[in-house]
Structures are given as C-alpha cells and as structure tokens.
C-alpha cells in the first residue's frame, strides 16, 4: 500500500482511543501484508501472481476473492480503459515500486495485450481465479479503499459497543468516516486536497456523514522524463497515462473499495461518461479540471464549499 495511515477516535477514554487507533492501523497493515500487496512476498495476491499457470484455476480466500470480483466488476464499465489484470502494464512503468520509467513502444504494446479482463475468470462458487500466463492482477487502485473498509470495521465495532462516538481513518488519503465526533450526528468536514497545492492545502470542504471518500489525481504520483511529465493513472487503451482535462476526481461512495475504484474509473472516463456508473453504485463525485473549474454530482453539490478563490464552479 505504501501509504501513511492515520486514525482518529473521538468520544472515548484516552486508553480506549489509543488502543483502538493502534488496532485499526495494525488491521490495515496486516491486510496489506497478508492479502493485498503486489510487491510483498507474504501477500496472497503476490503468491497468486507468481503461481505457475499450470496450477490454475487457483482457490483464494474469500476476502481476496470478493476484492478481486468487485474490482473487476467496477472496471468492466471502463470500456477497456481499466482492468483488474493491468499488472503487466503498471509494473512496466515501474508504478508498483515507484521506480518510474517510460517504456519503449514495443514493450507497451506487448504489455497491453496482457491487460484484458476478458482472460480473467473468477468463479464465485469455488472462489477460484484464472488468468492467462503473463498477466498480473493489480489491486493497487483499490487497496487504499480496502484498507479503509477494514479500519472502518474496527471503528464501527467500537462505536456500536459505545467505546467511542466516532472516528476518521485516512489510508493514503482515502477516507472512512464512522459515527460522529460528538455522538450527536454532527457532520464531518473533509477537505479536498488542492491539486495545485501542497499536501496540506485544500481547495474545498465536503460536509458528510458516515461515508467513504477517495480521490484520484494526476498530482499523486508523477515523474518527469525528457521534459515530459507522466502521471500514474494509465489508460489501458493507449498504454500511457490518461490524457484528460481532469486533475482530480473525488468520490463519495458506499464502501471504501467502491470509492477507490470509482475514483480511478471516473478519472479515466471523464465526467460525462461517469454518470451511469455513479448512479449504478449510488456514488457522488467532485470533478476538478486543469483550469481550476469544479463540478459535482447533483446531490453532493450542496455539501461542497469552495474555500479557495482560484476555483470556480462550472
């Protein structure tokens, strides 16, 4: 996952809050190390990607299976721009290990051929996974959301038990908000990072209740080679970072996984083409363009307040 995890617990005793925060952090890290990580050899996903094709189909834990299945389903709406099996291309660009490089055209073409979800088969009855030789499954764009789900679980149990009144988790910038800070349903205020500012500047605030938020932005992971800047959200139909007027998309969704996957998906699809899938998953979105104009889905619009004069509504 490679992200900073922060957990805040409200309304309980100090000891309870402290141990809760630690428990939630540990749960997220364990999830990454045990199940989701594409680079740690201890993780189930790693072992899956490194299994001999002759051994396919492989049975996996239901935890991993559900994550894979839901990610695949969401990316099925991408028109080929995103896929669960995009690992071959993301490793080529060095996205997984932050050792970025611009691959040669032949390498990209070869990797793209291995990035179709058509050859990824998931059997829900037996929890088995099958994919073509050379393919790699990648949960990199949903991992943070999954981490949020896991941490939210820990917090939710504590809220239900009355230990705390609420909590907020941030896993690499993906947010889960559980309960409320005062136990009376006061909304949370979430800032959306200014795509053109530093890590602590936000251009808008979102007032939300219990929810899951994720932001995908071209500012997140970038590198420059030969004067050209490349961001990390790859469009599988071209093999290159998506060319778009968008600089960031923030999604408010029902689960962490959905918010994370949808943020990547909507960034790739653009505002117009995202409407359908957003409705389908009952999710809301805020779109930010390179010219600092902002738009949001209808029911979210009222909860968004622009706090930076440079930004205007479309």
């Amino acid at each position: 996952m490679g992200s900073a995890i922060s957990v805040s617990a409200y309304g309980g005793s100090k000891e309870a809050a402290h141990s809760l925060c630690v428990a939630a952090c540990d749960a997220v890290q364990a999830l990454d190390t045990r199940v989701l990580s594409k680079t740690a050899s201890s993780s189930e996903l790693y072992r899956l990607n490194h299994t001999d094709p002759a051994a396919f189909p492989v049975a996996v834990s239901s935890e991993l299976f559900d994550a894979l299945a839901e990610t695949k389903a969401i990316y099925a709406h991408s028109g080929g721009k995103a896929a669960l099996g995009c690992g071959a291309l993301t490793s080529l660009w060095g996205m997984d290990t932050d050792e970025f490089r611009v691959p040669a055209q032949e390498e990209i073409d070869a990797a793209r051929a291995l990035c179709s979800d058509d050859t990824v088969q998931l059997d829900a009855e037996n929890n088995t996974v099958f994919f073509a030789p050379g393919q790699e499954l990648n949960l990199g764009s949903t991992g943070k959301g999954l981490g949020c789900d896991r941490a939210a679980q820990v917090l939710r149990e504590a809220v239900d038990a009355g230990t705390i009144t609420g909590g907020i988790v941030s896993v690499g910038g993906s947010i889960a908000a559980v309960g409320s800070s005062d136990g009376e349903g006061t909304s949370w205020r979430v800032g959306i990072r200014d795509p053109f500012g530093t890590a602590n500047e936000y251009f808008a605030t979102l007032t939300v209740g219990e929810s899951f938020l994720s932001t995908s932005g071209s500012y997140e992971k970038q590198f420059t080679e030969n004067g050209k800047t490349y961001h990390h959200i790859l469009d599988l139909t071209t093999g290159y970072p998506a060319e778009t007027q968008l600089v960031s998309v923030t999604i408010v969704a029902q689960t962490g996984l959905q918010s994370d996957a949808l943020s990547t998906l909507c960034f790739l699809l653009g505002e117009e083409d995202s409407r359908e899938v957003l409705e389908l998953y009952n999710a809301q979105a805020v779109f930010v363009y390179a010219d600092r104009t902002v738009s949001a889905t209808a029911s979210l619009r009222g909860s968004v307040e622009l706090v930076n004069d440079a930004y205007t509504w479309r």
Binding site: G173, I175, R189, V190, G191, I192, R193, L206, S214, T215
Partner: peptide
C-alpha cells in the same frame, strides 16, 4: 486553525 477533520488526497 484548520477547520476540517481530515483532508482527502
């Protein structure tokens, strides 16, 4: 003072 509870990024 920052008046949000968390920043999404």
């Amino acid at each position: 003072p920052r008046d949000v509870d968390v920043i999404a990024y």
